[in-house]
Computed example of a mutant assay.
Amino acid sequence: MRKRNTVSLLSFAWLAALLAAPAPAAAAVLKATLITPADDARMERTRLERAYLGHPGGPLSEGMEMAVDEAGFELEAAGAQVALASVPAASIDAARTAAVAAEKNGAAVLLTDLPADWTLAVADAVKLPVLNLSEASDRLRQQDCRARLFHLIPSERMRSDAMAQTLVSRKWSKLLLLVGTSAQDATRAATVQASIKRYGLQVVGTKPFKLSADPRERDLANPLLLTAGSSYDAVWVVDSDGEFARTLPYRTVLPRPVVGDGGLVALAWHAQFERYGAPQVSRRFAKAAKRPMTATDWAAWMAGKALTAAAIAAPKGPNAAWAEALAKNALDGSKGTGLSFRAWDGQLRQPMLLSDGQGVISLAPAEGVLHPRNVLDTLGADAPEKLCPNAR
Rank of each mutant, 00 (worst) to 15 (best):
A381D: 11
A99C: 04
V360A: 07
D93N: 13
D345I: 07
G368F: 09
A108W: 10
R373D: 14
L363Q: 08
L267F: 10
V281L: 13
P372R: 05
V375E: 07
L15Q: 15
G79N: 02
A327F: 02
A320M: 03
A16V: 14
A313R: 13
S8P: 00
V68S: 06
G263R: 04
E44P: 00
H55L: 13
A213L: 08
L370D: 15
F73A: 04
L326D: 12
T378A: 10
D161C: 09
L226R: 12
T337E: 12
S212W: 11
C388L: 03
A162D: 11
D124M: 12
G263T: 09
S8Q: 12
Q347T: 11
D332I: 06
F73Q: 12
G277P: 03
A164D: 10
L248Q: 11
D382I: 12
G58S: 00
L354A: 04
R349N: 11
L110R: 03
I92K: 05
G79H: 05
L220N: 04
L264H: 02
Q272G: 11
G205A: 15
S169D: 10
A108C: 12
A32K: 06
W269R: 06
F285K: 03
K335W: 08
D69V: 10
K171D: 15
Q143R: 15
D382C: 02
G205M: 05
A94L: 09
A20S: 12
A78N: 14
R159K: 14
S91T: 15
M302H: 06
A381Q: 09
N374V: 09
E243H: 08
V281W: 13
A71Q: 12
A27M: 15
R148Y: 03
A213D: 13
L220M: 13
R146V: 03
H55N: 11
S173P: 00
S355K: 02
A186F: 05
R96S: 04
A321L: 08
P372Y: 08
A391W: 14
A17N: 10
M64C: 03
F209N: 01
T227R: 08
Q142V: 00
A71V: 07
V369A: 04
S282K: 01
V235G: 05
G57H: 03
A271L: 01
G200H: 15
D144T: 02
V375Q: 03
R45W: 09
A90H: 12
R275N: 14
A102P: 01
P279S: 10
K386F: 10
G54E: 01
Y250G: 13
E385R: 09
D345Q: 01
K386T: 11
K127D: 14
D40V: 01
T33G: 01
E367D: 11
V68A: 02
D356T: 08
